[in-house]
């Protein structure tokens, strides 16, 4: 799968957030997207998935050559895209088991039969792998979960849905080092197959566990520089002030 973002511009209300994002990614590759708070990283993930709060004002998002910006969010998901949310919502009254069974059905509709036994076995295995207690199958999705449990639940969903490309929106934030290792293990397991990811993060530490092939720095709604792992080292040493100094633009003065 090839995802090609070209000159993507988007705003929320009257505030422009994305000011021309260019980024090409393929399954088989892991990209890291870094940048200071407010640079537009989360907006990019929401816009790629079609969150209704954002208005696209320019550019294209091509998935294998097809522009997905006119598609509804669920149609984008059905292409094999996955978004691990920064703040997963709580879905009261819907158990993890029931939700995932239906989501897997939708994902593999017409591809393979989802057998009751097979599904539960897969789910239990994936839960063991993610160190999630089996009792969570019967709990309402994310309701009353701790921050770390919610993040692990996002990765569990990814393992069950087997997307071709995932955007992980600050999945590392708020995790202790053990939970971070579990989350990274889930992502690395996906890499055994034809899988690509965009890992959005503020910090370098998740990238110690998941080695990115490419690293991009976002600032003021644009990708300002791209490269390999050496950029992470650079950021760690010099912080984001270096980005601001080198790539910052004067704010446009509004009348």
């Amino acid at each position: 799968m090839e995802i090609k973002i070209e000159g993507l511009e988007a705003k929320i209300g009257d505030t422009p957030i994305l000011r021309g994002v260019d980024l090409t990614m393929n399954s088989g590759e892991v990209h890291a997207l870094m940048g200071p708070n407010g640079s537009g990283k989360s907006t990019l993930s929401n816009v790629v998935f079609g969150h209704p709060s954002y208005e696209v004002t320019g550019g294209r998002v091509l998935v294998d050559g097809e522009d997905i910006l006119e598609m509804e969010p669920h149609e984008r998901a059905r292409l094999g895209l996955f978004l691990a949310f920064q703040y997963p919502v709580e879905i009261s009254g819907v158990t993890v088991g029931r939700f995932l069974r239906r989501a897997v059905e939708i994902r593999f509709e017409g591809q393979k039969e989802v057998r009751t036994k097979g599904f539960l076995k897969d789910l239990r295995e994936a839960m063991d792998f993610m160190e999630i207690d089996q009792q969570f199958i019967n709990r309402y999705l994310n309701e009353g979960f701790s921050g770390g449990e919610k993040k692990r639940m996002e990765i569990l969903q990814m393992l069950m849905l087997q997307p071709q490309f995932s955007i992980l929106d600050e999945t590392d934030s708020g995790l202790d080092i053990d939970a971070l290792a579990v989350v990274a293990r889930g992502v690395n397991k996906m890499r055994e197959h034809d899988f690509g990811a965009l890992i959005i993060t503020h910090y370098q530490r998740i990238l110690d566990h998941i080695k990115p092939d490419f690293v991009h720095i976002m600032y003021q709604g644009r990708i300002v520089t791209s490269g390999g792992g050496e950029i992470v080292t650079e950021l760690e040493k010099r912080g984001y002030d270096w980005v601001r100094a080198q790539y910052g633009q004067e704010e446009e003065v509004h009348e």
Binding site: E72, H74, A77, F85, V89, V94, I106
Partner: peptide, 27 residues
């Protein structure tokens, strides 16, 4: 945001809304 979350997992908006409505009463 809940409908969007379910849509991001492939649920059509109609199905997402129905699931949320059933979920509202389910407890």
């Amino acid at each position: 945001n809940e409908v969007f979350y379910l849509a991001s997992r492939g649920f059509s908006p109609e199905e997402a809304e129905e699931i949320l409505l059933q979920g509202f009463f389910e407890p």
